[in-house]
Amino acid sequence: MAFSVPSLVVLVMIFSSPISSFSCDLPQSLDVGTQETLTVLGQMGKISLLSCLKDRTDFRFPQEMVEASRVQKAQALSVVHEMLQQIFNLFYTEASSAVWNTTLLEQLLSGLHRQLEDLETCLLQEMGEEGSLLGMKDPTLAVRRYFQRILLYLQEKENSHCAWEVVRVEIIKALWTSSSSSLSSQLLG
């Protein structure tokens, strides 16, 4: 099942020259990464969510981070990077590999890893232009807390198949929300 949504994640051209000449072309590549991630996450679904209704929970997605109207581009990049890193960490566990199809899981992790590497280039470039992120309120703290709630939920549910299914759907929703927010607009602007 393919999802048609604006994208959140970034793929950039990486050149073998010094960082100062790296290209960070967000508008051109924004759609590709999210589309790939959402497609793979969609394909990973194995069980019906109807059978897992009792396991649903509100992870309290940090809406304030994605709807911030005056977020700087470096902060937006930082939030996107943190989200992708946390998604990667979440699915790069022994518990995750026990639940998901190995081929799809490897495809997801490979795509996320590639996107993270590319996004780091943009983040380094943007930090150089806007100055250090030090001194700014940590824009990723709310994202980390959100993923901490997800990890605690999985532990409480003993990494059950239903718990992972609820988390998979939550991650799709979080990516969708982030990609259609002012955060995504800031990255394009």
Rank of each mutant, 00 (worst) to 15 (best):
N89C: 10
Q115C: 05
Q35A: 07
T102F: 15
M127S: 04
V71R: 02
G128V: 03
K137M: 04
F59K: 04
T37I: 14
Q107P: 01
V80G: 03
L104R: 11
Q85W: 05
H81K: 12
D31V: 08
R70V: 10
T34C: 07
E82R: 11
D25N: 14
L50E: 13
C24I: 10
G111C: 13
V32M: 09
V32G: 07
D25K: 00
A68S: 11
L53H: 09
Q28A: 13
R60G: 03
P62H: 04
F22D: 05
A76Y: 02
E82T: 08
Q72Y: 01
Q63M: 07
L49T: 09
R56S: 06
S29N: 15
S97F: 11
G33V: 03
V66K: 01
L77G: 00
G128A: 10
L134I: 14
C52I: 13
T121A: 09
T103Y: 13
P139L: 00
F91K: 09
R56N: 10
R145H: 08
L123M: 06
Q28R: 07
R56Y: 05
S23L: 09
F91R: 11
G33N: 09
Q115H: 12
G45V: 13
G135L: 12
L109G: 11
D55H: 09
K46V: 06
V80M: 02
F22I: 02
K46C: 06
I87H: 06
L141A: 14
E64F: 05
A76E: 02
E120F: 10
H113V: 06
L104I: 00
F88I: 03
Q125I: 08
G45E: 15
E129M: 10
L108C: 13
A68H: 07
E36R: 14
S48M: 06
M127N: 11
F61I: 04
Q115A: 13
Q85Y: 05
L49N: 07
F91H: 15
M83V: 10
L50S: 12
G33T: 11
C24P: 00
Q72G: 06
H81V: 02
Y92M: 13
T34H: 10
L50R: 12
T121N: 14
G111F: 10
L90W: 07
F59N: 03
V66F: 05
N89E: 13
P62N: 05
L133A: 10
V143T: 03
L26M: 13
S110F: 11
K137S: 14
C24T: 08
R70L: 05
Q35I: 08
F91Y: 15
L119E: 07
R145E: 13
Y92N: 15
G135C: 06
R60Y: 08
F59D: 08
L134A: 15
V99T: 09
Q35R: 12
L77R: 00
V80C: 01
Q86G: 00
G131V: 14
N89V: 03
D58A: 13
S78N: 06
E120D: 15
T103Q: 14
E130P: 07
A95R: 10
L30G: 03
T140L: 02
R144D: 02
D25V: 08
M136P: 02
M127V: 13
F88S: 09
E120I: 03
T39C: 03
T39G: 06
R145Y: 11
G33K: 03
V79E: 02
C52G: 10
Q35C: 11
F22P: 02
L84W: 01
H113M: 12
T102C: 02
